[in-house]
């Protein structure tokens, strides 16, 4: 037997390396093939070792609990979904209203200071405002 035939024979062993007489004789005389057979046996032993490991207890319980949790999450989302939508709309309305009030307040302060500066800091306080009011188009139209 040569190395090539030995390797082919080795390939046929799926779960345990059990060499025939010719192969054993070849392995005795060929270190490379002997090591190859040993490493294949090591590999198959590792597979057998891993196959012996039992599934942890309560896997089914873990799976069922996980499924229930997922359903609870979906279910609670379904219950809260309309309430969340209403809250979001209300929040948008309140936010919008508050924003507009704040902006109005800001502009009102600006208007007030403009009137003050117009009235007191000009040479003839109030005249330009009065004129503006007296000769405005709206006044004439009335």
């Amino acid at each position: 037997m040569n190395c090539s035939v030995f390797e082919k024979e080795l390939l046929a062993h799926q779960h345990k390396v059990e060499l025939g007489l010719d192969a054993r004789l070849h392995a005795d005389s060929c270190l490379h093939c002997r090591l190859l057979a040993q490493s294949q046996q090591t590999l198959l032993s590792a597979v057998a070792d891993e196959k012996l490991v039992r599934v942890p207890p309560f896997l089914s319980t873990r799976v069922m609990a996980d499924l229930n949790n997922r359903e609870m999450t979906v279910h609670s989302y379904r219950v809260w979904k309309p309430a969340l939508q209403v809250a979001a709309v209300l929040l948008a309305l309140v936010g919008g209203y508050s924003g507009s009030v704040l902006m109005d307040q800001g502009s009102a302060i600006d208007d007030f200071s403009a009137v003050l500066s117009d009235y007191f800091l000009m040479d003839e306080p109030g005249l330009s405002i009065e004129e503006g009011w007296l000769y405005s188009e709206s006044y004439e139209n009335e």
């Binding site: 597979v47 196959k51 490991v53 599934v55 896997l59 873990r62 799976v63 996980d66 499924l67 997922r70």
Partner: peptide, 27 residues
């Protein structure tokens, strides 16, 4: 569960990972 776990072991070679993976598979 045992078959699925064994298969997972073949890929990950770690009991904890194989258990988590098995759970994931069943979900």
């Amino acid at each position: 569960q045992q078959k699925v776990f064994q298969t997972c072991m073949g890929f990950v070679h770690d009991e904890e990972d194989a258990a988590d993976l098995s759970q994931d598979v069943f979900i």
